[in-house]
């Protein structure tokens, strides 16, 4: 019965590795080939050609692109992400601590938005066409499209400037306990919650509406099952499966939104790291940061696929019969 599962996972894993590799090529291309001359990009058009040549040699970017790529990949495999030009120190430790910070923020976001979004979506579907459904749909839709920096400003004005309920800065004092950390994380998390809420609610609602109108739900009703049992046993499971994939896909988006939010709240995460590297034209750092974000997304979608496969018997048991 699980005969088809092993090969499926292997294939999925191989595809993820392929995606990762292609990703490294794309990122490398963007950081090393596209600028043409990294040192010139860093030093600006007026710099002394000798200084440019010297810097290129120091960065190693005077070598052929393939060679640079291979040495970069070789470094990555051994955990060496290269040297930061701006900080004049190895990149890897920066990435590590920034990633941990960003994961804390992302976890806060998802802990708030997933139950909220799914709950609202289920409620909207159960009251389809009624005022509460319209309210959730319209609110979700309008909130989804508000850029994080816009909602951040509004939130800062209300909660940090006017009411002074929450700290403005996302960075907590060193040695703070989890509760204080959480307090600092709420305000930066909210803009992302606002963006993701509508999307998750809408997808949940769509899945619910489809499952509610499915023939098998009608079968369950006609069996004489009480509505609660119909809902919990027959509708929810089929309706929420596709939502898992949606949530995973949003992880990647959330990481993108982190760039804006982290910079706005001066939070030391992967987003502000990438942005800082971009501003400083610190290509080694940029390359490593972007690749980390991409890799994180690839891993979450892989996990989501595995979870969906485990939960969906049609996928788990392979094709027909």
């Amino acid at each position: 019965m699980s005969g088809a599962l092993g090969p499926f996972l292997l294939k999925r894993l191989a595809l993820s590795l392929l995606t990762l590799w292609l990703l490294s090529v794309v990122v490398f291309f963007g950081c090393q080939v596209l600028p043409g001359d990294p040192a010139r990009a860093i030093l600006g058009p007026l710099a002394d050609p000798r200084a440019v040549a010297a810097l290129n040699e120091k960065l190693g970017s005077d070598r052929p692109p393939v060679e640079i790529y291979l040495s970069w990949m070789g470094g990555l495999i051994t955990g060496d992400m290269g040297q930061s030009y701006a900080y004049r120190s190895p990149v890897a430790p920066f990435i590590g601590s920034a990633l941990v910070n960003s994961l804390k923020l992302a976890a806060t976001v998802f802990a708030i938005v997933v139950p909220l979004g799914i709950g609202a979506g289920v409620l909207a579907a159960l009251r389809a066409g009624r005022p509460i459904d319209r309210l959730i749909s319209v609110a979700g839709l309008s909130l989804t499209v508000i850029p994080e920096f816009v909602s951040s400003i509004a939130l800062i004005l209300v909660f940090a400037v006017l009411l002074r309920w929450l700290p403005l800065s996302a960075s907590w004092p060193a040695g703070s306990g989890p509760l204080v950390q959480l307090q600092h994380l709420i305000l930066p998390a909210l803009p992302l919650v606002i963006v993701l809420f509508g999307y998750i609610a809408r997808m949940t609602r769509a899945g619910m509406v489809e499952a509610l109108s499915a023939d098998y739900t009608r079968t369950a009703i006609l069996k004489g099952l009480p509505w609660r049992t119909v809902l919990s046993r027959h509708v929810l499971r089929n309706a929420l499966l596709p939502t898992i994939t949606v949530i995973a896909a949003q992880m990647g988006y959330a990481l993108g939104g982190l760039v804006v939010v982290e910079s706005l709240f001066r939070y030391q995460g992967i987003g502000s790291l990438v942005l800082g590297a971009a501003r400083a034209k610190d290509f080694a750092m940029l390359q490593a940061g972007i690749l980390t974000v991409g890799a994180f997304f690839v891993v979450t979608t892989l996990l989501a696929d595995i979870v969906t496969t485990l939960l969906d018997p049609r996928l788990r048991t392979g094709g027909r019969r």
Binding site: R218, L222, K223, R237, L241, D312, P313
Partner: peptide
């Protein structure tokens, strides 16, 4: 519904819960 009336639809593949 539980005791007196039963129904069989056209498309059995869709009348059964897939999961």
């Amino acid at each position: 519904r539980a005791r007196e009336v039963a129904m069989v639809f056209q498309d059995p593949g869709r009348a059964l819960n897939p999961s």
